[in-house]
């Protein structure tokens, strides 16, 4: 995750950002930045632009793995919790059966009647995977985060309303303050600004 890299010491150039007027402009500019070979850069827009992942050359999101882990954890928790509290006596491990619950024999049915545990298994699977989705999304994005150098720019804040911004970080190997600024201008940026950290 590019912009989450450790911030350089204060009052150094953090990035150069260019403001674009509309979606088609920022979209084609993003495609050119990608082709130019920048690595530490980002597009900021008030809503997810359809197809911007390809225009920026982003790889598939890893959220699904975090979520899948959550689902497995949830199901495992549910199986262990229910098995332990309802069928400890059926599990022939001495220290586990010490902790077992009621072990009530109902109509001669086995204590570990897994069919009856399905609703809770399903619910906990969903619960944990939902946490996986939200927390995984936040973790992959490096959020929550208290502050970001770009937020010092008044023009940057417009991307929460109707602005479209491309920022190229100073940490990028191809970065040069003068050149990158004029490059962004040549892509059609209406305003180019150097952001200090």
């Amino acid at each position: 995750m590019t912009l989450n890299s450790a911030a350089p010491p204060p009052c150094e150039t953090f990035a150069v950002m260019g403001v674009f007027a509309d979606v088609p402009a920022v979209f084609s500019a993003a495609e050119q930045c990608r082709d130019e070979g920048f690595t530490k850069w980002d597009v900021f827009s008030p809503f997810p632009i359809h197809g911007i992942n390809e225009a920026m050359g982003l790889k598939a999101s890893k959220v699904a793995y975090v979520m899948g882990t959550g689902a497995i954890l949830g199901v495992a928790t549910a199986v262990i919790m229910q098995g332990w509290t309802a069928a400890g006596a059926d599990i022939h491990i001495s220290w586990l059966s010490q902790l077992s619950g009621y072990n009530v024999n109902t109509a001669g049915k086995p204590l570990f009647a897994w069919e009856q545990f399905l609703p809770v298994i399903f619910e906990l699977g969903v619960l944990f995977s939902a946490f996986g989705a939200l927390l995984g999304m936040l973790a992959l994005n490096g959020l929550p985060r208290h502050h970001h150098p770009l937020m010092t720019s008044e023009h940057f804040l417009s991307c929460s309303d109707d602005g479209f911004v491309i920022a190229i970080e100073a940490a990028d190997p191809k970065f040069d303050e003068q050149e990158t600024s004029s490059y962004l201008k040549s892509l059609g940026a209406t305003h180019v600004e150097v952001v200090k950290s």
Partner: peptide, 12 residues
């Protein structure tokens, strides 16, 4: 939570 409308964030 410090959301800053980044496209890399939007993607996730």
């Amino acid at each position: 939570l410090g959301w800053r409308f980044s496209s890399r964030h939007w993607w996730n």
